[in-house]
Write a protein that binds this DNA or RNA. Sequence first.
DNA 1: TATGAATGAGACTTCATTCAT
DNA 2: CATGAATGAAGTCTCATTCAT
Lengths: 175, 175, 175, 175
Amino acid sequence: MTDKKEKILRAALELFAEEGFKSTSTNKIAKKAGVSEGLIFRHFGNKDGLLQAIIQEGEEQAKVLFADIVMESDPKKLIEKYFGLTDKLLDNPEMANFWKLQYKIKWELEIYGEHKMEPLELALTNAFKKLGYKKPDLEARLLLINMDGMATRYYLQEGFNVKEMVEYFRNKYKQ
Amino acid sequence: MTDKKEKILRAALELFAEEGFKSTSTNKIAKKAGVSEGLIFRHFGNKDGLLQAIIQEGEEQAKVLFADIVMESDPKKLIEKYFGLTDKLLDNPEMANFWKLQYKIKWELEIYGEHKMEPLELALTNAFKKLGYKKPDLEARLLLINMDGMATRYYLQEGFNVKEMVEYFRNKYKQ
Amino acid sequence: MTDKKEKILRAALELFAEEGFKSTSTNKIAKKAGVSEGLIFRHFGNKDGLLQAIIQEGEEQAKVLFADIVMESDPKKLIEKYFGLTDKLLDNPEMANFWKLQYKIKWELEIYGEHKMEPLELALTNAFKKLGYKKPDLEARLLLINMDGMATRYYLQEGFNVKEMVEYFRNKYKQ
Amino acid sequence: MTDKKEKILRAALELFAEEGFKSTSTNKIAKKAGVSEGLIFRHFGNKDGLLQAIIQEGEEQAKVLFADIVMESDPKKLIEKYFGLTDKLLDNPEMANFWKLQYKIKWELEIYGEHKMEPLELALTNAFKKLGYKKPDLEARLLLINMDGMATRYYLQEGFNVKEMVEYFRNKYKQ
DNA sequence: TATGAATGAGACTTCATTCAT
DNA sequence: CATGAATGAAGTCTCATTCAT
């Protein structure tokens, strides 16, 4: 990957996450990346191609991130690790941007992309089963749904205290 | 309110909720409403004005809806009523559209609009306090966050079974 | 002439003189006049008709103004009266507006309307002839041309001291 | 400057001078220039930017034109050169258009732009001082005011004989 | 006489995309 | 690989004018 291609990807990620896909013009991206507008099309074909490239890159990072959780065999520890995700996401700004983008395009383009979360959901289901929950699948899904809610607040509600909220929620699973 | 003004509002609500604010052209709205494009601007000044008008209308409906919950003095019943919201929202398609729009523009325009939910949050906090929760404010917020998560799934994940999920979550507060 | 028709004329004169003919919308005129937009068209047919009506009204006032000068038989006094015009124009704001409009539309619509000034030019020519000027017609025209120049400055150059300038010019014809 | 950018400037100058700024649509300019409408905005940002570009170009030409007059140290010759301006302006059609535009926008947008004439006014003032005029500043201004008047006639009154008029006026300063 | 809702043509502008260099 | 001039379709918005009431 050339230097300029990288710069385009980074600029586009930031702008899409900040202002949305439709609202970000290729011109703006080019300017932010310090690159000619035509180059975007040379590298990615069209604006959609650029978006796809960003998503793909992010997914690979996500896989790595999830792998550690999914591989955990101890149910208590697995759930702990799941809650640990939040910290990891918040500490890495590039990651934070990527997840914001995920949600933005979820709503803008109406693609939920559940397959990405499937392994995580299965792992959690299994953990809850081991812990004797009656409806482990629903419990697992509840956790993920909650994460969507937290994300909504974190990204959109100014002054929202995520850490406190996550802590409170996490404690419910600690006994 | 004239007949055509109403038609514009309805058409715009549907289109904004379906395709987003930016992606919906005034031309499309006019065609769907069976009206000249200029009329939109005569009545609402500009596209933003149209959005504001839709939001305002919806908020008035929301107030009525929330009033019944907020006024409830019995904590158990209040929480029950809160969960009952879901059914009400899902049964009225106009309402469902309005809430979808709320979330869409939350993400598209990055306005959270927390003030709308404040009375509900306070009422829930008070209910949990009466029931002896140690951190009633966090518990209340958790419920609302959950609603954001449910909404995300309901509107975006095809085939998501809301009723089952809500039922499962609601049961946690029934004992 | 009805009250509302008058109001339209006055509002339009002011706006046309301030912002130009094309740049003034009938909507703005209606608002300033406190009248429905449709009424403008009922009374004047179309926007051009409104302009014509304003011009006609002003011309009648101009005729009265010029008559006193043109009828003067003493050449020195006639020239004095000509320079006295300036004071009269400056003291009456409605008149000032009308003349500003005259110049504005001269440039906007490229109609000079020389016929309006013809009697004045002839009278001045005759006066200069009596005074023994070799080219009285050119001298007369020079005076009028100068008036155009003064008007340009008076209406467009902020802080321009007309009275001083007119005084200086007038003195050239006093010996 | 690309070929097409030039063509836009030339077409716009002609149209603005002929029909005024507001009355000339960008569509018309594009067609006259044989160019897509969008290109205007790529090069000049917006319609105002286009106007500014035209004005700036013209001012640079004006500076050159004025320099020769302003640098003259002999007062008689300086005044002669000032009157010689007229011929120069009339002979170059591009220049004539530019000055017409100047007057048009003076009236349409109400910007006098006196700074442009200041050096000329100062030079004339100085010349008249040398020649022993009692109020050289007013005399200088009178000359410029006259020029505004001449321009008004030249551009707007069909059949107006400028050369004759200028000749007559100029002779007043020859003895 | 008077209103104001409604229209349709056309204004300015944005933008993804193409292409010669 | 890289640029940036150029395009054309589509977008938001303005405005003179019409018409039912």
